[in-house]
């Protein structure tokens, strides 16, 4: 089962401030634990919303509006995510609890959302069949 842990932005992260050395070390250790347990899939930080773009579609249809950041509501922005692979929801919750507090002010929350199984590589039997067909076609075809 895969889960995504979401860390939300703060005024500090939006201002481009880097985490303290203490937090950086703690996060590194946490990721190491995840990696050692074979649970780590990805752990990434995101640049502040000043580097972001929003493409919004109106209910009425038509071309999207493309807006550059920054966007104002820090609490609704994601600052980082971690994708983990575990065998149960309880395990995911446990890992979420163990994440070092990423918020300098000491308060905040981490969000845990389950990921629908979406294989990364396309096991496409159709492609294989088509390719085999192609090679047979090549051998059958006469050169001009």
């Amino acid at each position: 089962m895969r889960f995504m842990l979401l860390v939300h932005a703060t005024n500090e992260t939006e201002a481009g401030e880097k985490p303290s050395q203490e937090l950086a070390d703690a996060m590194m250790k946490y990721n190491e634990e995840l990696a050692k347990a074979g649970a780590l899939v990805a752990a990434e930080g995101l640049y502040p919303s000043s580097a972001a773009v929003r493409i919004s579609y109106s209910a009425a249809g038509g071309k999207p509006k493309i807006m550059d950041g920054p966007f104002t509501e820090a609490k609704e922005l994601i600052a980082g995510f971690t994708i983990i692979e575990v065998s149960s929801k309880e395990e995911a919750i446990e890992w979420a609890r163990r994440m070092p507090n990423p918020y300098p002010s000491g308060e905040g929350s981490i969000e845990l959302r389950q990921i629908f199984e979406a294989p990364e590589i396309n096991e496409n039997a159709d492609w294989l069949a088509k390719e085999i067909e192609l090679r047979e076609h090549v051998t059958r075809k006469k050169r001009p």
Partner: peptide, 19 residues
């Protein structure tokens, strides 16, 4: 330091090997 190894790339690599 294996913590710095990118697990996404590793998973993609292992999947490709499986193919």
């Amino acid at each position: 330091n294996r913590v710095l190894w990118d697990q996404l790339h590793i998973r993609r690599g292992l999947a490709a090997l499986e193919q």
